[in-house]
Design a protein around this nucleic acid. Sequence first.
DNA 1: AATCCGTGGGG
DNA 2: TCCCCAAGGAT
Length: 300
Amino acid sequence: MTTISNSAVPPVNPVELVDWFDTSARPLPWRAPGTTGWGVLVSETMLQQTPVNRVQPIWEEWMRRWPRPSDLAAESQGEVLRAWGKLGYPRRALRLHQAAGVIADEHGDVVPSDVDTLLALPGIGAYTARAVAAFAYGRRAPVVDTNVRRVVARAVHGAGDAGPPSTKRDLADVDALLPSDDATAARMSAALMELGQVVCTVRSPACESCPIAHDCAWQHAGRPAYAGPPKKVQKFAGTDRQVRGKLLDVLRGSTGPVGRHELDAVWSDAGQRDRCLDSLLVDGLVEQTADGRFALPGEH
DNA sequence: AATCCGTGGGG
DNA sequence: TCCCCAAGGAT
């Protein structure tokens, strides 16, 4: 059988993509020249599963308040959770706070540029480690997020969308596309993400304005529909995730500890409510005071 | 590998 | 309205 991935000519031309990125990329604040590794790490963490427009104002505030890792590390967990606001998945804030402490104490208050060192930090996984290495330090690193997976699925494999993720295979796919030199590879990684976000979108891809449409395998195949296994959509209404969110929202909005009765008001199912409060305590997102009330951690 | 972890906007 | 999903990570 013929194998597309082993063809001699790369299916995606780095120069075309980078040129397009240089002229068309959105001027996001964390892309501004002079953004520190810390700024990039904060942005990448906030952007995990959270849209750009919601992240932007919070990121600006964080950079103003905590311009270095040690600044954040010196803050209480509760204050960090409050400043995280409603970005969602607040455990990210806790892990970023922990990572800031490690960076301050063990890395001279400078975010590491080495992928393996980054991977050792809490809350930093395969995506974020490589995004920091590439975007903050100009390293050649295959940055694979949901957008890049879709672009590769279409442009390289001719499929309508990416199948289930497989870190090893996904990394290899993108690694094969990147040119050898660090600067261009890093730029191309950013370009692949941008393309997936603004052009090669899930529902209505703007192929007419795509810089690589002419050598896109999906285009040449007649843009077939996605044929892989059905995507799993997580429920939210009625789940522990919703209840935890409501409980935490009460604590974020309160200046001091709150009694159990105030928390009782957010959810009628007492069993689920108690289970969720317990899990928040276990996760370190909530602490219980000596008199039995509840508060954000480190604020009483 | 599958599941859990928040939140809010758009189709 | 409901359903999908948006720069993932940890277990």
